[in-house]
Amino acid sequence: MNDPKNGMTLIVKTVTRVTVWLIVLYGIYLILHGHLTPGGGFGGGVILALAFLNIMLAYGRDATQKWLNIKFLEDIEAVSATLFLFMGILGIALGGRFLMNFLPKGTPHALFSAGTIPILNILIGIKVAMSLFLVVWVLAGLHEEEGGKK
């Protein structure tokens, strides 16, 4: 992990190790409160992706690849997109229209309220985080493999 050849200096690595969890926490906070405050799935997802990118920048792409299962991230991305679509189709099944808000709305300003919106926010957050991270990941690795396709 602390291989001096890969990535940046020890200071950056140490600071990253401390702060990356705070960034992840902030991203999760934004996603969960998407229906109450500014932010939401996209903003929180971008911050989550930045946390991952932070690791990649600090430790180098090769070192990150060793303990991060990229294929698994790709699968999570596809699953979250599929689940989003299923929520839309569930809306047809239970409410009669695509993306119908079929759950009880609850009281305004409570964390568990607004029906399906928090669920959709979480799914979008995961999708955005994974795709944004993977886009940068693939672009960073594009110069290494010759001839393949993104």
């Binding site: 944004l132 886009v135 693939v138 672009l139 594009l142 110069h143």
Partner: peptide, 16 residues
């Protein structure tokens, strides 16, 4: 974002 990422990917390939 999507367009830019795609353009950058194409640009990398073009330069190669």
């Amino acid at each position: 974002l999507g367009t830019t990422a795609l353009l950058v990917a194409l640009a990398i390939r073009l330069v190669q």
